[in-house]
Nucleic acid binder design. Sequence first.
DNA 1: CTCGAACGCGCG
DNA 2: GTACGAGCGTTCGAG
Length: 899
Amino acid sequence: MKLGGLFGQPKALAQVPPKKKPLSPAAVAGPEVGEAPPVNLSHMAAARAKKLKPGQFDIAWPKIKPQQLKDYAPILTAAELEEWLDRCIETGTCGFDWETAANEETRAAWTQWEKDFDLEGRRAHYLAVADEAMTIDLEGLDTLTEKQRATEEKRRHKAAEKTAKIWEAKAAELQKEYDFQRAIYLKTPLDPWRGDICTASLCPEPHRVRVVPISHKQGKVFEPMLTRDAARKLFLDMLDRKIFRNENVRKIAVNLSFETKYAAKYAKYIQKPAADPLVAWVRCMQLVAPEKIKDPKKPASGWGLKPTTLDVFGVQMGNFTELLQKHGADFFDEIAADRGEGLEYSAEDADYAVQHDLYWMEIAKQIPRYEDWLNNIEMPFGRVIGLMEYWGMKWDPELAETKRKEAIAAQAAAAESIREIIRGCLTGDDNRPLEVNVGKGGKTGEVRSVIFDLMRLPIAKLGDPTKKGVRLPSLDEEALIDMEFMLLHKLEDLKEEKYLAIPLPEGWEQIDPDTDPELSKDERMAIRIAKREPHPFREQGMKLMQLMKAIQKAATLLSSHIDGREKHLNPVSGRIHAQYTPWTETARLNSFHPNGQNVPRTDNDVYKIRNFYIAGPGKILFFIDFSGFELRIMAWKSNDGTMIELFNTGGDMHKRTAQSMTGREEITKKERTDAKPANFGISYGGTEHSLQTTFKTDYGVRKTLEECAKMVAAVKAAYPGIPKYQVDIVTLARDTGYSETIYGYKRLLPGINSPNSYERGSAGRQAGNTPIQGTAADVMKDVQNDVYDEIGRGTAIRYDQAEASDADRMGLLDLTAACKAHPLSHGSTDMIAQIHDEIIFEADEDADVVDALHTFVKARMERPPLPDFPVRIEAEGSVGYAWGEKRDAREWAQEKRGA
DNA sequence: CTCGAACGCGCG
DNA sequence: GTACGAGCGTTCGAG
């Protein structure tokens, strides 16, 4: 790759003098200066030799040259486009960027909505009514005294004001609703189901960009004799054949997921190598300039293309919103892109995509393994994000509505039962049964006050200290379980639980625990508890605790998982398009708007919400997940012989752990179940306390701390590699200041050498967990990148065949139909979601297609992550017409063939 | 009235 | 004070 023009040798640029006048203000700002001094390599080596503090990297920051004269111009013919794409092939670089706008259907729908809504008419009407109300009728006051008259006038005036206010509020509400809907409309260019690409820009090297105005209401456009759909298709086909499929061209886009999403709309796939400079700069900054990250939870915030370009190159790029406002435009296609500001704005993004790529990869090279990790795993993964966001998952509105009604009824019933219990126990100031607002989740301040101040139920657990240092009683599931337990056994403090196991001496009813000298301390306590009067609200309290658990669960399911999802339903696709980002500490994905990764499992959800997510007509959902993924990675990372052998011989790790716990060969089902949470907890650095809580809340089993401590010890004894790993990894992290994954992602751990033992402990557990969780994430991303490329290859082959055979009549070819019915191709096998160790596809309801998909993805997932990876990786596929109904994939295919 | 903290719960 | 990672809805009080 040539680094011309940025830092070092500008040869490539010198050969091609700019043809156009400068467009960028930055370019005019100063004359072109000579070459920057080359990076002093001996200095770098010397610096590297010097001892760096943990978490410090010795980076030689590339020198920046002033921007050159910009060569930005439009392309209006296929011939020019072909020439320019060949330039990209020559340089091996193609920075690219789309501008998008609402499509015609979206605009027409908005015009209709606006007309029906009739903001002006209705608003004017409401305000007129308000105005009229203020015209106060003062008739019939003649008979009154002066004083009465004044009072009556005041009363009428007040009433009129009140009426007027109501109508004014209605008008304001109308305006608010209109503004809300309009804001949604103005964002439709972000949604490929409601928008189209209107402009594209292409950059083979810094400072040189061609802009292709495809569909514009102003200015010249690409191949004007064609329909805009046909012009778009011509452009994308050429770009696809010359660039997207070309493994020798580096495709570069800032926020690659967006470009990919729109590419997917037109059934185009962007093959590796693919780069996203935004990913590169955020991930590099986190390590080498962490002080620049304002909010570690959202590391990309404040570091979009524009601010980062200002920071790195000193160039202030154009502002999209201001540009639209200046031209009075709703969307970019209302501005000309063949000249002027529209052209410059489009071109800049592609230009700086390339410049940032060159700059930040120079930095990545200086961080061990980062160049490879970014190039192979993290940057190309933006494509997978775009693809999954494009497809989303089909939603069944009728089923959702039915279950929604059920949930609302259940919630109301639980709330009424809670109020009923409280009415039965307490009276208010007026001596009537106490009425309490229980809210949606049953946990308002009023309810808290009733439980702890009036009924005085025992406190089981305190929350975290608030800012004032107060620790309020908790009412979470664990606390409710414990409070019910305490009421049942007459405990005043949860610490008394251990005395319940003490056998009571014979005739304890007659023994005075305070005076009898024969008794042990434990026996005294046991007798005291046994002799205690039950809590005055024992029965009501226990019932209340059960209801509180139920109402909170029902409220969460309803508001978060039913109502909270439906509002994200895309009106055009009929699908829920969860969004994703890679900005997590371990390089896992996260999901939001809505979160597609926390949909309740059917075994924990009476409404079976997963079944609201369905396959489209003629489709099935194909699920494939890694089995015991993180434990297998722990086996590799800790190099524990027992674990490795268990996984490689198809052994049962939970059974093996249970054997270690009991010391017996034969294991009951219950003993195996008990071992599970201990195994899972260990990779988080879990303790007996956390294990005890897990048993209580997830398994409904009460265990003593001693029992749990024994279990933790048994796991560590069974797999001695684990405790050794946990010690070693912390030692290493204290030295390096970070923890890393299989392919080289690094997480800085500033707390690892902290004088604060809590912080140090926390960072230590993170040091242990990050290589496990992060490696799982890396491996999954690598798999999905390859699946994306495979779908892309299949799609390209099928598309070419279809186009050659089918009558490709000026863009009338149905892209999706052309690619259908072939394994691993667009519209036939679509990757629609990822949940950490599981991928979800929507595929044709066709045994051959599903078998082919299953075979390819399973083999790819089970491929060793590294050549000498010692642990066997396994993946299991299943099929369903809805998310909540999974069955074995091979069985389904066989049955399908038989039918 | 808006916004953020605290709490609680869903997922792997 | 004792588990890793993540998002979102409700409630409540500060500004």
